[in-house]
Simulated scan of single mutants.
Amino acid sequence: MPIRSIAPLAATLFLLAACAATISQDGLEQRTAQAIGRTVGQFSITDRSEEAGGRINYTVNTRDGAAYRCYLYGATGLQNAVTFGQTPHSDAICTPMAGGPRASGSVGPAATGQRDRSAGGECNALLRAAGRC
């Protein structure tokens, strides 16, 4: 096969590989543990999918039945190559799922990371408008 016919194929494969996120499963678990306030091993990660640009979407299910939908941005292969591996991955962003297996109609302050307003926490106009106090 002539090199001229292989070059476009090689360039396409390189670009596709360069767009994939490079974060390891351990890194994903560490960032998720920080985001949901659990230790690694108390949850499982499922439904992992990657978008262009390094965004990773996934679902987290905890041992006690809580469910979260999370995402983070991982440095791509191209970003790592250009910056000699110095591009960091983002923190995980997780949202508790109200319709999860443990849902009872509303998500409590501990699951959302909010302080309990009835225990002496502050209640301002924004919190009142959002129905949080």
Rank of each mutant, 00 (worst) to 15 (best):
Q114L: 11
C123P: 04
A17Q: 10
G37H: 09
E50C: 08
V82Q: 05
A67I: 07
L72E: 00
Y73A: 02
H89Y: 12
G108T: 10
G37F: 00
A21F: 06
Y71D: 13
A130H: 09
T62C: 11
I56G: 07
F14Q: 10
N57L: 12
V107K: 01
P96A: 10
Q25P: 11
G41D: 07
L126D: 14
R4C: 14
L72C: 04
D64S: 15
I45G: 04
A66R: 11
I6A: 12
H89F: 06
L9Q: 08
L16Y: 13
F84Y: 05
V60R: 05
P2D: 11
Q114K: 06
H89Q: 10
T76M: 10
C70M: 06
H89A: 15
A67G: 07
I93A: 10
P101Q: 09
Y71R: 12
T12L: 14
I93Q: 14
T22F: 03
L126V: 13
L16R: 11
E29Y: 07
Y58F: 15
R132A: 14
D47N: 15
A18L: 08
R55V: 13
I23G: 00
R115F: 11
G77R: 01
Y58R: 09
Q79S: 12
P8I: 01
P96G: 03
I36Y: 00
A10G: 02
G131V: 06
A92H: 04
E29A: 15
P96S: 02
F43L: 03
A35C: 08
A7V: 05
C133V: 10
L13H: 01
C94H: 00
